[in-house]
Amino acid sequence: MLKTIAHRVAILCFIAFSLFPLFWLLKVSVTPNDLLYSEGVRLWPSRVTLDHFSFVLANSEFPRFFGNSLIVSGTTAVCTTILAALMGYALSRFRFRGKLWLAGLLLVTQMFPLVMLVAPIFKILAPLGLTNSLAGLIVVYTAFNVPFASFLMQGFFDGIPPDLEEAAMIDGADRFTAFRQIILPLGLPGIAATLGFVFTAAWSEMIFALMLISGNDKATFPVGLLSFVSKFSVDYGQMMAAGVLALIPACLFFLMIQRYLVQGMTAGAVKG
């Protein structure tokens, strides 16, 4: 009993700790500018306003950043997940020469700090006309996310008994049909998790977006946020309002997929 209580309290502390910045974001976004510095540190302002939100939506370039981010993150998530599903399946089911080396190589790609790679990536993309374009960002994000996403998908496929697709193949399916009709539906939780993971990773990526994109036309939202920082002042209210708005798609996305994240669909497939 005491153990459960301690356990719960610990979890509560952790949740409070991790959610507090989000709360602060919300708090500042609804604080009128004149109260921001005058009221000192308090948990909730004496007067709230939605002015920052309406300004951000109507008078800033934020909607464009938002749209760009949506395109980049969405496309990256879809491309990465398709590639990772195929790759993960191969890693999970097939024996082939050099598999260990391939897996090792995938891991090695994850070892370098992104900053190191910015210059070479720029050098590669520039002659291809992929700098300052959303397509370029999508290519780079996909390339960087595929290795980890493949491992993620491999883990999910490993959890699906190979008997199932063997049964399908004996029933008359070829391997790809078995993959499509049996394994993919059962892998939905994994696919959803991968989609979500890659989407959020791309959504919040900053370094490449900053380096590869110049000008507000193609800027994604994290880069756009910097436009609220001017030479002489930072418009915290608007910046935070934009931040709150940017949280919405990520939250929606997770609401949509959380059903799959917690659901164990393979239950009952094999001996229960």
Partner: peptide
């Protein structure tokens, strides 16, 4: 046709 030890029924 084959009957598997795990039955391998399609869960969905």
């Amino acid at each position: 046709a084959m009957v598997f030890q795990s039955y391998a029924l399609y869960p969905h």
